[in-house]
């Protein structure tokens, strides 16, 4: 176990140590809200951060397991590719934004735009998520144990959203969908993996109505033919 102290070492030195390690366990003390901490990791290292972090903590994570004992600012684990990022406290805006893979677990609440443009990541939020969460979400799963704010899943593509509490409102083209056995199965595994305890039967599923997938031109001149395109 290697201990790195941000009250004495620079961000560059700490990140360089984490980025060049091929394995091992690290503890970072006195993060004091530092931005871009533990970003760009690309190996199976385990990193524990003792305290609050600023923007883009664990950004673009690959393979590494990062645990934040505290709160995080904007863009926690943004564009995560693989590995996992867990935070005991609350996350600011755009948590796990554009994440392509891996797992992000937020034990507290996540602010607005959680999972915006997500592309394959799984996100589990113990508390609530703010407005515009899963905006333009393309793939992956957002699991919310609490409530969701306004415009959930606006302009959503193929991501799946599971919310246990209330949804203030659904965004454009986002609709409630049937919970099928495979969804319950997924939730059971996902919650176990994230160390969350919740009854899966209490969740509702939301996803894309797929009505915004293509422009729908009228064609008055060719009135006899329908120009509507159907999409799956």
């Amino acid at each position: 176990m290697t201990s790195l102290d941000l009250s004495t070492g620079s961000l560059r030195d700490v990140n360089a140590a984490l980025q060049t390690a091929e394995s091992g366990e690290f503890v970072i003390t006195h993060p004091q809200g530092a931005h871009a901490l533990a970003c760009g990791l690309n190996a199976s290292v385990e990193v524990k951060i003792e305290g609050p972090v600023g923007y883009y903590c664990a950004g673009m994570n690959q393979l590494a397991t990062v645990l934040v004992d505290g709160n995080a600012g904007t863009g926690l684990a943004e564009n995560i590719m693989s590995g996992s990022v867990t935070i005991t406290g609350n996350a600011g805006q755009s948590a796990a934004a554009t994440g392509h893979g891996g797992l992000v677990v937020i034990h507290g609440n996540a602010s607005a735009r959680c999972g915006i443009s997500m592309k394959g990541v799984d996100i589990v939020v113990g508390g609530n998520v703010g407005h515009m969460s899963a905006f333009m979400a393309q793939a992956g799963n957002l699991v919310v144990l609490g409530d969701a704010g306004d415009d959930l899943g606006d302009s959503i593509y193929e991501a799946r959203l599971f919310v246990r509490g209330s949804v203030a409102s659904l965004g454009a083209d986002c609709i409630e969908k049937e919970m099928r056995p495979e969804h319950l199965e997924f939730l059971t595994t996902c919650l176990t993996e994230s160390g969350m305890d919740a009854d899966v039967s209490g969740f509702r599923r939301y996803g894309s109505a797929r009505t915004l997938y293509n422009f729908q031109p009228d064609d008055v001149d060719a009135a006899s033919e329908s120009t509507e395109r159907s999409d799956g």
């Binding site: 980025q19 970003c39 760009g40 600023g54 923007y55 883009y56 904007t74």
Partner: peptide
């Protein structure tokens, strides 16, 4: 925010 984003991009690319 962009200033912090640029720091992140620099940190990731050394």
């Amino acid at each position: 925010d962009l200033e912090i984003k640029i720091i992140e991009l620099r940190e990731i690319t050394g």
